[in-house]
Amino acid sequence: LFGDAFLVAPVLWPGSRTRDVRLPEGDWYDYWTGEQHSGPKVLRVDAPMDRIPLFVRAGAIVPTQQDMQFSDQAPVDPLTIDVFSSASSASRLYEDDGVSLDYQHGEYCLRALSQKSDTTLNELVLSTPEGGYRPPKRRLIVRFQGMKRVPSSVSINGTQMPSMQPGESRRGPRVGTGPGSGLSGGESRGAGWIYNAEKRVVTIQCGDTFGEQRISVR
């Protein structure tokens, strides 16, 4: 285990392209395929040269950023949050300017993240941050993992998001027209949601408002 959310299972023998992984008790997601498994049990999994077997515990809320060569190469944009749904869970996201000691004087950005899921609703809530620091304006991408059907609606703070499914006309109002969307004008054309049936992922893109944002998938 790497922390309490990740199970990393590297190949230990030269030439091996599969390996057995012992999943602890609980529900787990295969990070690469989106498949869900319940432990405890032993799985035989593929382990190609370019991919280390990786499993994520249900309930994990995982923020990531774009690849960088060094920590302050560029502002984080977009901030991506993967939600590995469970009945409910919570986490926190801490950020500061990355270069100064101003965080010691309250110049940081600390946000509560919470998710809940049932048969009709998957939801992520980003709280209004604590502290005096705010990152530069950026996009927010939220990916709900393990979604078994196309959503009937996706909303942010009650404002409907448009679908961006290939070959489908956009549904709903422009994202920039409602509270919590974080995008306006031309930026709103890049906002909305899309469903990947193969990986069972709903991806939502909007702006990060640094206020409370309640992202709901039904």
Score class of each variant (00 low, 15 high):
residue 136 P to Y: 06
residue 104 Q to I: 12
residue 135 P to V: 00
residue 114 S to H: 12
residue 149 R to Y: 08
residue 146 G to C: 06
residue 122 N to I: 00
residue 105 H to L: 12
residue 140 L to Y: 01
residue 143 R to K: 13
residue 120 T to W: 11
residue 144 F to S: 02
residue 116 K to W: 13
residue 147 M to W: 09
residue 120 T to N: 07
residue 150 V to R: 15
residue 150 V to S: 11
residue 145 Q to H: 15
residue 111 R to Y: 03
residue 113 L to R: 08
residue 113 L to Y: 03
residue 143 R to G: 10
residue 123 E to K: 13
residue 117 S to K: 01
residue 124 L to S: 06
residue 115 Q to E: 14
residue 105 H to V: 06
residue 113 L to T: 07
residue 147 M to H: 09
residue 106 G to T: 07
residue 146 G to E: 05
residue 148 K to W: 02
residue 118 D to K: 04
residue 155 S to Q: 12
residue 106 G to W: 04
residue 152 S to N: 14
residue 134 R to D: 00
residue 143 R to I: 12
residue 116 K to H: 12
residue 111 R to I: 03
residue 126 L to N: 10
residue 124 L to D: 06
residue 127 S to G: 12
residue 127 S to N: 06
residue 135 P to N: 08
residue 124 L to A: 04
residue 120 T to Q: 15
residue 129 P to S: 08
residue 144 F to M: 06
residue 101 L to W: 07
residue 115 Q to I: 05
residue 134 R to S: 02
residue 142 V to T: 14
residue 146 G to Q: 06
residue 118 D to S: 09
residue 99 V to G: 06
residue 142 V to G: 02
residue 132 G to Q: 06
residue 147 M to S: 03
residue 155 S to C: 11
residue 147 M to P: 01
residue 111 R to E: 00
residue 119 T to H: 14
residue 135 P to F: 01
residue 152 S to C: 08
residue 140 L to P: 08
residue 119 T to P: 04
residue 131 G to D: 12
residue 108 Y to M: 12
residue 119 T to N: 10
residue 109 C to R: 05
residue 119 T to G: 10
residue 122 N to T: 00
residue 110 L to G: 06
residue 152 S to R: 05
residue 118 D to H: 05
residue 126 L to P: 08
residue 117 S to R: 01
residue 121 L to P: 02
residue 114 S to K: 14
residue 148 K to Q: 15
residue 129 P to I: 12
residue 128 T to Q: 10
residue 112 A to Y: 01
residue 143 R to W: 05
residue 102 D to M: 00
residue 141 I to E: 15
residue 109 C to W: 07
residue 140 L to F: 01
residue 134 R to A: 02
residue 128 T to L: 05
residue 137 K to H: 06
residue 120 T to R: 11
residue 147 M to R: 13
residue 128 T to K: 05
residue 107 E to R: 04
residue 100 S to Y: 08
residue 102 D to C: 01
residue 153 S to R: 13
residue 134 R to H: 00
residue 101 L to V: 14
residue 121 L to H: 12
residue 104 Q to A: 09
residue 125 V to I: 13
residue 146 G to A: 05
residue 149 R to L: 09
residue 123 E to L: 09
residue 111 R to D: 00
residue 100 S to M: 09
residue 150 V to H: 11
residue 150 V to P: 03
residue 155 S to M: 11
residue 134 R to N: 00
residue 153 S to E: 09
residue 129 P to T: 08
residue 106 G to V: 05
residue 126 L to K: 10
residue 113 L to H: 03
residue 144 F to P: 01
residue 127 S to F: 04
residue 101 L to Q: 09
residue 126 L to W: 01
residue 132 G to L: 13
residue 134 R to V: 01
residue 126 L to S: 04
residue 137 K to L: 01
residue 101 L to H: 08
residue 142 V to I: 13
residue 135 P to S: 08
residue 141 I to M: 13
residue 110 L to I: 07
residue 132 G to S: 11
residue 108 Y to D: 10
residue 130 E to L: 15
residue 144 F to T: 03
residue 142 V to W: 01
residue 136 P to N: 11
residue 105 H to E: 09
residue 141 I to L: 07
residue 113 L to N: 10
